[in-house]
């Protein structure tokens, strides 16, 4: 009986452990099965580089949305990466213990606030500022970048901080003993040593920006056109799915799944890169 229980529990845990594998496999299969027929019909090149998105007329080109995703993500990274790294240095090196015990839960809270709330804040607060001060419709690449930059901070900060904190103590002690200032130690010794962790955090942060949906629906204006400046509205891949999925059917629905395939591949490339970098570090 004891032995039977022993064997059974091992088996059960093993079967439960297969859940993530089957989930990922199922997700991949169903997104591809739904989306591939349309890509095959329209042609991969026409789908990716097509400029016209007009499902009712049978035009399925997502190039403007790829440009939209890339430009908003780039903007978010431009603001979010330096700010995120500064915050992680602050947490790991400069913050007094009490300050740290406020800062860490605050960053967790930042991660926990629903994305729709950020989108709303952007719509009510950031968008009007951009419209009044800088011109344009306000719903723009800039608005999306600012809000996504805030949203990717927790990812960048937590992973970078951990990798700075994980450095062996003698790195810092050695550098300080050689007469380097605290900042020189951080800049010349700790940051380079923690580089791989920081890069992984940044890549995962970028992944979050690429995949975010509700915020961009609310603040980007969703126009299917190539932006000429950061004050122009754009539509991203996620927005395209999010807005149109509610009423799409037939080919139109397939086209949205095809958009999902492109998004999925983009995200998986980022995911795998981040995983390779972290694994190399741990060796």
């Amino acid at each position: 009986m004891k032995k039977f229980k022993e064997k059974l529990s091992g088996r059960i845990f093993f079967i439960l452990a297969l859940s993530t594998i089957s989930a990922l496999v199922l997700i991949t299969i169903f997104i591809f099965v739904e989306g591939m027929p349309l890509i095959a019909e329209v042609g991969l090149f026409n789908f990716i580089f097509g400029m016209v998105w007009s499902p009712s007329q049978g035009h399925f080109g997502i190039f403007p949305m790829i440009v939209g995703t890339v430009s908003v993500t780039f903007g978010a990274a431009l603001i979010g990466i330096p700010v995120g790294i500064c915050c992680s240095i602050f947490m790991a090196e400069f913050a007094p213990a009490r300050m740290r015990s406020i800062f860490r839960p605050a960053i967790q809270l930042l991660a926990g606030i629903p994305s729709v709330v950020y989108g709303f804040w952007g719509l009510i607060y950031i968008v009007p500022i951009i419209r009044d001060r800088l011109g344009g419709p306000g719903l723009s690449v800039l608005a999306g970048s600012v809000i996504l930059a805030i949203m990717i901070l927790p990812t960048i900060i937590s992973i970078s901080e951990v990798s700075i904190m994980a450095l062996p103590r003698h790195y810092k002690e050695g550098a300080l003993a050689l007469g380097m200032t605290h900042w020189q130690t951080i800049w010349r010794v700790q940051l380079p040593a923690a580089k791989s962790g920081i890069v992984a955090g940044v890549i995962l942060g970028i992944g979050r920006a690429v995949g975010e949906t509700m915020v961009v629906i609310m603040v980007l204006g969703n126009a299917v056109a190539l932006p000429e400046s950061i004050l122009d509205p754009v539509r991203t891949l996620t927005t395209n799915i999010g807005i149109e999925m509610g009423y799409a059917a037939g080919k139109h629905q397939q086209a949205l799944f095809a958009t999902g395939i492109v998004l999925f591949i983009l995200i998986m490339i980022l995911n795998i890169t981040a995983q390779i970098i972290t694994r190399r570090k741990s060796k």
Partner: peptide
């Protein structure tokens, strides 16, 4: 790790179709 990085809209698409 991959599931952790997949955006929620993809989960939505999958849940919708499956």
């Amino acid at each position: 790790e991959s599931l952790a990085g997949i955006p929620s809209i993809i989960y939505g698409l999958f849940g919708f179709i499956f």
